[in-house]
């Protein structure tokens, strides 16, 4: 089975890729790992006339730690993220999500940039990045700009990217000393997209009072959803508080019934997974 015909370009630089996007606009698509796009093209659900391959552009695959935090290049493969020790220790939520995305073969190709830009509410990394307050760097004909993860997702398959823009990097600030994070996902079988999933990150003070908290929902609405938890700053991180956050997730979720389950069940899972993710985050802070 073949996709519809298209013209193929393998630019050697980001600027070259951007000028191709400028030229062909909506008729063009960039391809990263191809683990979503190629499949959509095979099924002819996507029919770009011009395909711009990012794989030959050097310098987009990296994980760099600094005093400020961590920078991940857009073309970094999911397996390299899953196997990164620094990420596992310092940003466990990213690790939790990475090892639960698709299967090892898909992860050998699939990139973080593709996962963040696809705009499928079932993609796992967007929730992770919203929970962590990440910032994306995108580049286009008008230069570079930064977009907060929470502002990036507009609707199903719709993001804040302009047609001539490419995501180049995602940045996550260094967590506070007492920070814990986790990603909880339920799926019907190994390698599948989430029935529902929740990302959580909390920072607490010496008395376990919450200083920062980020919660986001995957597969629980038309797009990835951020839960407004601002009212819980200052509460002690304990089961009572987690129950309250769970309630907020329950109210925020807008699931629909599909082959992965009925909406009511998914809504219940939004709460249950929020509580589980917070519990695990706290245990990680306490070294349990």
């Amino acid at each position: 089975m073949y996709p519809a015909p298209f013209e193929y370009f393998a630019p050697k630089s980001l600027d070259e890729a951007i000028s191709l996007l400028e030229k062909y606009k909506e008729e063009a698509k960039v391809i990263a790992g191809g683990q979503s796009l190629t499949i959509l093209m095979k099924l002819r659900l996507a029919r770009p006339k011009y395909l711009i391959d990012l794989n030959k552009i050097p310098g987009l695959e990296y994980i760099i730690e600094s005093n400020e935090g961590i920078k991940i290049g857009a073309m970094t493969r999911m397996n390299d993220i899953a196997e990164n020790e620094l990420i596992r220790k310092t940003y466990p939520i990213i690790h939790d999500a990475a090892i639960n995305i698709a299967d090892p073969l898909v992860r050998n190709m699939g990139t973080i940039g593709g996962n963040l830009c696809h705009g499928d509410p079932g993609n796992d990394m967007p929730s992770v990045m919203i929970a962590l307050n990440a910032v994306y760097t995108v580049k286009g004909t008008r230069g570079e700009r930064k977009i907060k993860a929470e502002d990036f997702y507009i609707d199903t398959f719709q993001t804040a990217l302009e047609p001539d823009e490419i995501l180049t990097e995602v940045f996550v600030a260094k967590p506070e000393p007492k920070n814990g994070s986790a990603y909880e996902k339920i799926k019907r079988r190994v390698g599948d997209f989430a029935v529902a999933a929740v990302g959580a990150s909390i920072s607490v003070d010496e008395n376990l009072r919450i200083k920062k908290i980020g919660i986001a929902l995957t597969s629980l609405g038309p797009k990835v959803l951020k839960v407004d938890t601002s009212g819980l700053i200052g509460s002690v991180a304990n089961e009572d508080t987690f129950e309250k956050v769970g309630e907020l997730s329950y109210k925020t979720a807008q699931p629909s019934s599909d082959i992965r389950g009925p909406a009511e069940y998914k809504r219940d899972m939004a709460k249950a997974l929020t509580i589980r993710a917070l519990r695990l985050s706290l245990n990680r802070i306490l070294g349990k």
Binding site: M1, Y8, G34, Q35, T38, I39, K42, L43, L51, D103, P104, L105, V106, N108, M109, G191
Partner: peptide
């Protein structure tokens, strides 16, 4: 047709990938 089965797995530059999902 959906990159699920792995029957098409090959090694490309040292990594196992599904050859039905690359051009």
């Amino acid at each position: 047709d959906t990159t699920n089965c792995g029957a098409c797995t090959v090694i490309l530059d040292g990594k196992a990938v599904k050859s039905c999902s690359l051009f």
